[in-house]
Amino acid sequence: MDQTIKDKVIVITGASSGIGEATAKLLIENGAKVVLGARREEKLQQLVKEFGENSTYAVTDVRKAEDVNALVELAIEKFGKVDVLFANAGIMPASNISELKTNEWDDMVDINVKGVLNSLAAVVPYFTEQKSGHVIATSSIAGLKVFPGNSVYTGTKFAVRAIMDGFRMESAMEKTNIRTTTLYPGAIATELLDTISTPETKKGMEDFYQIAITPEAVAKTVLFAIAQPAEVGITELTILPSAQA
């Protein structure tokens, strides 16, 4: 058990599967208290039953500011504080711009970008008041370079990168002691590909993801970032399969 993690209260969105689920499990194993947010209540119930008294959940749609606010408020009511917010929820319905899947574009902007903004808005007042806190956000390797066939998703992940880096600088200037960490995962074996509606695109991505590594690899980087001393900021982490070019 990592004693630097023990009793920290960590709020996680997108917690019902993939990176969010793996991270919650690893943090619980290291003595943290976790507050899980996602849209699938049955899965959240299963996880809380598995994790025990150091966990709780709220059904959360990150597109709705009131849901994310309620998730943070639950953490404070249940555990008395929030130390870390992990804005992890995201979708990737990849397609070419020419396919004009505008509903999917809207969903990506609302979940991938506005979801992060809603998370910041929910937690920053508490962190500012207590003069400490840590915001972690899942961008993507697509937040560092553009991938054709995935232009809108790439745009949303570039946005996460810009928002988080700007917030990091603002926090330093405001002396609020809020740390930030932006994650840039590559091919990770999650449910992300399930949101792709174009059959040929989905097949191509599934073929590429044969090299995918487990969500636990990303969870370990989250643990590492949280465990650093308060004066140390791990601001960016890129996590790729070693076979990914």
Rank of each mutant, 00 (worst) to 15 (best):
D2S: 09
T4H: 13
K6S: 10
D7V: 03
K8D: 02
I10F: 04
V11A: 08
V11G: 02
I12F: 00
I12K: 05
A15W: 01
S17E: 09
G20Q: 11
G20I: 08
G20F: 05
E21S: 10
A22V: 06
K25T: 15
L27K: 05
I28F: 08
E29W: 14
N30Q: 14
K33N: 12
L36W: 05
A38D: 06
E41I: 14
E42R: 15
K43C: 06
Q45W: 15
L47M: 15
V48R: 12
F51P: 02
G52T: 14
S55G: 11
Y57K: 04
Y57P: 02
V59P: 04
V59S: 03
T60E: 07
V62C: 04
R63G: 13
A65E: 09
E66Y: 13
A70R: 04
A70E: 11
L71D: 07
L71K: 01
E77K: 12
F79Q: 00
K81M: 00
D83S: 00
V84T: 03
F86Y: 13
A87K: 03
G90F: 06
P93C: 02
S95E: 11
I97H: 01
S98L: 08
L100K: 14
K101E: 13
K101C: 02
T102L: 12
N103H: 09
W105I: 03
W105C: 06
D106Q: 05
D110N: 10
I111F: 03
I111Q: 00
N112R: 08
N112V: 09
N112F: 11
G115Y: 05
L117G: 01
L117M: 14
N118M: 09
L120W: 12
A121N: 15
A121W: 11
V123H: 10
V123S: 10
P125I: 13
Y126A: 03
Q130F: 09
S132N: 13
I136S: 02
I136L: 13
A137Y: 03
T138V: 10
A142R: 02
G143Q: 00
F147I: 01
S151T: 07
Y153A: 10
G155E: 00
T156G: 06
A159F: 05
I163C: 08
M164C: 07
D165F: 07
D165N: 12
F167G: 00
S171V: 06
A172S: 03
E174Q: 09
I178W: 01
T180P: 11
L183Q: 06
L183W: 06
L183H: 05
P185Q: 06
A187W: 07
I188S: 04
A189R: 14
T190L: 07
L193S: 15
P199S: 09
K202M: 01
G204N: 01
M205Q: 07
E206D: 11
F208M: 13
Y209Q: 04
I213D: 12
P215K: 10
E216N: 13
A219T: 09
K220S: 14
T221N: 12
L223V: 14
L223W: 08
A225L: 07
I226P: 10
Q228M: 12
P229Q: 06
A230R: 11
E231W: 07
V232T: 15
I234K: 05
I234T: 10
E236T: 12
E236Y: 03
L237T: 14
L237D: 04
L240Y: 11
P241G: 14
S242T: 14
A243M: 13
A243C: 08
A243V: 08
Q244A: 10
A245E: 12
A245M: 14
